[in-house]
Computed example of a mutant assay.
Amino acid sequence: MSSTLERHAVAVGGTLVGEGPAVVIGGRVSLRAYRGESDAYEVLGERATLVEPYSAADLPAIAERADAVVVGSSWTRDIPLVRAAAGLGLPVVVERRPAAPLEEWLELADYCAREGDGQVLLCEGGRLDLGLMRAARAASGRPVLADVSRNAALSAAAVAAGADGLVVDSGAPAAGGAVGGAAGGAAKLGTYAGAKAAEPSKSGALEFVGPGSPAEPRQETSPASAMRAAEEAVTVVGALVRHEAPATLPECREAIDRVDAALATLLERRAALAGIVQRIKPVGGFAGRDLARERALVARMALRAPSLGEARLAPIMNAVIEAGLHLAEERSAE
């Protein structure tokens, strides 16, 4: 097992993975989908992000046009190909073989680091074991990716479990167990700063759903829908769970945008719950306010936000509560 416990960050296509915000990597190109019957240069186009070779013959094209090479889960025991891929001088994404234990996964990552330049990321795909992914991140110090191509509804859970990035299939044909690709063009990679909004639910709230939820989408979601789910997860959930230390004004503003997106999502959810309360209470509206409960709420919030304290939180929460009451009254009058 890796003894390297320091936190690492790996640059993939100009984006740092493993520090700061989580990222979305759109498009994993698997040349195995073409079984060696297509020219790798033509498949990759001008540039690609994560590329898995079919054979050693694909490696020159990958070295020239990819941002990172993928050691695929189906051939992690093909040591000659693993060694050759790791030696390209590119960042190496090491997928976990199905049912492989943590020790085997980390040992393979260490092997790739020794054969290459040390820039290695771990990737969990298929039926995601998020607990194992979290353990791999803690034990190795390496960045971890979660391939959510097969079930984008797990995007939020993956970020909450510590994923440094989400991989989303761009919808190219796949075969032989490969996870899709981005044939014919460069894939999208980058942090999502909340500049774009995911599509809202019918109630207007941005929602996440997970396995077992009545709203859980089919696993065969479109690439565009999967991308939106992944982007929203790294924005909203990432703002809550990722530690960031921005060093520049643009980075600070992007971090603030993510926090604001999370705030808006939570405020919308709070307003929806407050509306339910108003329908249940014997006396609703402003006449039914419980000021003692509101003071207790502010006191509890101050424990989580000591730098703001009760004096600053009280007017903020009063405005939030009054906005929710006004909204409830407007809806009841419709």
Results as ranks from 00 to 15, higher is better:
Thr4Asn: 06
Glu6Gly: 08
Arg7Trp: 06
Ala11Leu: 03
Val17Pro: 13
Val17Tyr: 04
Gly18Arg: 00
Gly18Cys: 06
Gly18Tyr: 06
Gly20Asp: 10
Val24Gln: 07
Ile25Val: 15
Arg28Thr: 05
Ser30Glu: 13
Arg35Glu: 15
Arg35Leu: 11
Glu37Val: 00
Glu37Lys: 05
Asp39Ser: 09
Leu44Lys: 02
Gly45Ala: 06
Gly45Pro: 13
Pro53Tyr: 13
Ala57Ser: 14
Ile62Gly: 14
Ile62His: 13
Glu64Gly: 12
Ala68Tyr: 11
Ser73Pro: 02
Asp78Arg: 09
Pro80His: 13
Arg83Tyr: 12
Ala85Gln: 12
Gly89Val: 13
Pro91His: 08
Pro101Gly: 06
Glu103Ala: 15
Glu104Met: 03
Leu106Trp: 08
Ala109Glu: 08
Ala113Cys: 03
Leu122Asp: 02
Gly126Ser: 06
Leu130Glu: 05
Arg137Ile: 00
Arg142Phe: 03
Ala146Cys: 10
Arg150Glu: 12
Asn151Arg: 08
Leu154Lys: 04
Ser155Asp: 13
Ala163Asn: 07
Gly165Ile: 08
Gly165His: 09
Ala172Pro: 11
Ala174Tyr: 11
Gly177Thr: 08
Ala178Trp: 10
Gly185Lys: 01
Thr191Tyr: 09
Gly194Gln: 03
Lys196Gly: 04
Ala197Gly: 02
Ala197Pro: 07
Ser201Tyr: 04
Ala215Lys: 03
Arg218Val: 11
Gln219Trp: 07
Glu220Ile: 00
Pro223Glu: 07
Ala224Arg: 05
Arg228Met: 07
Ala230Thr: 06
Val234Lys: 02
Thr235Phe: 01
Gly238Thr: 03
Leu240Phe: 07
Leu240Trp: 07
His243Thr: 13
Glu244Arg: 12
Ala247Leu: 15
Leu263Asp: 12
Leu263Trp: 12
Leu267Ile: 13
Leu267Ala: 14
Leu267Trp: 09
Arg269Thr: 11
Arg269Met: 12
Arg269Pro: 03
Ala271Leu: 14
Gln278Asn: 15
Ile280Met: 12
Lys281Met: 05
Phe286Tyr: 13
Arg289Thr: 08
Arg289Met: 09
Leu291His: 12
Arg293Gln: 10
Glu294Arg: 04
Ala296Met: 07
Ala299Gln: 09
Pro306Phe: 07
Ile321Ser: 09
Leu325Phe: 07
Arg331His: 08
Ser332Trp: 01
Ala333Trp: 01
